[in-house]
Design a protein around this nucleic acid. Structure first.
Lengths: 206, 206
DNA sequence: GTCTATAATCGGATAGAC
DNA sequence: GTCTATCCGATTATAGAC
């Protein structure tokens, strides 16, 4: 990236890219795959890459961002959701559920986002390991944030219900291409599905 | 299956299995895969297998059952749904939505059913062709029946919404294994998700 | 045996020196 | 860019009271 086309080496530490970043990403991919998202520790990844754990943070900030970089996600899901859920981030006239549907659809309607997401989904459906990795990432990084805005009673259960509906929408709309859903507008889907999420978050689920 | 262990051949048509059934199933698998569910005609399948179309009906009854046999489904989804939706098939105290969730979960909690379903899903996520096949089958054979019990305004849209939530539940529960959903009881899930389906079927979706 | 309090450990994250 | 040192929250282990 920043590698200068410089051949005459001078003494001292080389400037620019030393390959460490890539080494970390490689180690991260392996660890995440082998041990899942939760089981892969920054310390172990750093050790595999032969660097100090603090370097990982220096390059990537958080574990979540490291995962996103390793998986080549064009955005950080948890941060997008987090921003969408932030107080004041949404039009007060709009329900929280509607806003969530809108956020998901807006992200997915970008081909690059959709493609990497579908790649993850494909792996998860195919491999048990990949499913574990995705489950733990989703739980930790997405559902965790959603649970924060749900009613405290069974917040995790509520967040998982939200996840199931959003996931199902993605599957029906982008994988299967079920016509009524594949061609529906964001507005229509938000109106239809938003209240469902709203109920899962704060309504009666027993 | 019905092949008698008989070695002394006698003149006339041989009894038992003549291989025709298998020939039809092979032709069906190929046609369904290449042309989708809707695009594969019984006549074309019969022609490929070198038999009369009437024979296909003789062996399998309906296109839906032929598909189920070709895909080795241990049950016929549309018929299970149809039975569940039949008037009087459910406890009048229970909502239709709850009953639908229950029906799906009861079917999926049988390993054999779950496995073949997940196989279809895997193919659909992996291959565009398989996705087309599954979409058309689901539309024709499952959503069509659900649309019949939905409010007439946008019945297809309503049925697709139902499909998306049920599909998402399957994905979250059986593929990802999201803990709150994977371990929840049928009762709990029916209570939580049933009302969603109910609203999609007959409520306000605009 | 069960419970609770305290301690040890782990893992993510930050600050700052070099 | 890299490392040392450190903090803090969460989990896990352990000890001692009842």
């Amino acid at each position: 990236m920043t590698q200068p086309a410089q051949d005459t080496r001078r003494p001292g530490r080389r400037t620019g890219d030393s390959g460490t970043r890539e080494a970390i990403l490689g180690a991260a991919r392996k660890r995440f795959g082998d041990h899942g998202y939760a089981g892969a520790t920054i310390r172990a990844i750093a050790a595999d890459a032969g660097v100090d754990p603090a370097l990982v943070h220096h390059f990537f900030g958080t574990k979540e961002r490291l995962f996103a970089a390793a998986m080549r996600l064009p955005l950080i899901p948890g941060e997008v959701i987090g921003a969408a859920l932030a107080p004041g981030a949404r039009d007060p006239g709009l329900g929280l559920g509607e806003h969530l549907v809108r956020t998901a659809l807006t992200a997915w309607d970008v081909a690059e986002v959709r493609d990497t997401f579908l790649g993850l989904l494909r792996s998860a459906v195919t491999s048990e390991q990949a499913a574990t990795m995705l489950r733990e990432f989703v739980t930790d990084s997405i559902l965790g944030r959603i649970a924060e805005v749900a009613s405290p009673a069974e917040a995790e259960y509520r967040a998982a219900l939200v996840g199931s509906q959003v996931l199902g929408l993605a599957l029906a709309r982008y994988v299967l291409g079920l016509k009524p859903l594949a061609t529906a507008s964001t507005d229509d889907l938000a109106a239809a599905i938003g209240p469902t999420l709203e109920r899962y978050l704060t309504g009666e689920v027993h």
